[in-house]
């Protein structure tokens, strides 16, 4: 298989398979999780819980009082890594072009130089959170193979994408193909690992916020 055939496979068959497994996995897991249902709460609410579920979805993105100080690396590293990733994924011109190609939706891109910087910053933040995971007793204690594995499959697309843009190590084509392949790997494993938190996070925060809203706990 030469480069063009490799690239053709990853952006054709490979992508189809990956997106297929991703969609299948996401729907399967969402059904599997949320169909378990829960009992209706019969206790009288302090006041109608209203939009507390939605509030928590947003508010939980901010550190509760005192926590930033207790675990600065988790928060700052986490912010930089998640925001950086979002910027790189959604505001890089070729990615927008891809989304436009698939969905017809498009929006303005950020300059490539800035994206390039963000990719480096994101990778740096990821390395920092990895080092933190290795160094901090609690994180190391909690870590399983899955934690190291998901870190790697998240890191690889950023690294290969950045290297492709920078023309490092391998010819652009090969790197681009590896980049797409690494994204496919990410798509395939996402529904079946802790990476699925990108979906369940909203459900979890909503449940938590709803319960708190019901009790009138200010969150």
């Amino acid at each position: 298989m030469n480069e063009l055939q490799f690239l053709t496979w990853v952006r054709g068959t490979g992508l189809n398979i990956a997106v297929g497994i991703f969609l299948l996995g996401v729907l399967w897991r969402l059904f599997e999780i949320y169909s378990l249902g829960r009992k209706q709460d019969l206790s009288a609410p302090r006041h109608a819980s209203g939009a507390s579920g939605f509030h928590t979805i947003f508010r939980r993105s901010l550190p509760p009082p005192g926590m930033l100080k207790r675990s600065p690396v988790s928060y700052i590293g986490g912010y930089v890594f998640h925001i950086g990733l979002a910027i790189v994924v959604f505001l890089f011109a070729p990615h927008i072009l891809l989304i436009k190609n698939l969905t017809g939706l498009s929006w303005p891109a950020l300059p490539s130089q800035f994206i390039d910087l963000m990719a480096v910053v994101t990778m740096a933040a990821m390395v920092v959170v990895l080092v933190d995971r290795i160094n901090k007793p609690v994180k190391r204690f909690l870590s399983t193979f899955e934690d190291w594995f998901t870190w790697t499959v998240t890191f690889l697309p950023v690294l290969t994408g950045w290297m492709a843009v920078q023309h490092l190590l391998l010819p652009y084509t090969t790197m681009l193909a590896l980049h797409i392949l690494s994204v496919e790997l990410l798509l395939v494993v996402l529904p079946f690992t802790k990476l699925f938190h990108v979906f369940t996070l909203f459900g979890s925060r909503w449940y938590n916020g709803k319960v708190n809203g019901h009790k009138g706990v200010p969150v």
């Binding site: 949320y34 009992k39 675990s71 901090k136 609690v138 994180k139 934690d147 938190h197 979890s204 449940y207």
Partner: peptide, 26 residues
């Protein structure tokens, strides 16, 4: 075991921040 529990377990990313909030750990 209900949907919230399933959602919670699937959301956990092993960040360890809950330990920082627990006085038995701190």
């Amino acid at each position: 075991i209900d949907a919230p529990i399933a959602s919670y377990f699937n959301s956990c990313v092993h960040c360890g921040l809950c330990a920082e909030a627990c006085l038995f750990y701190t």
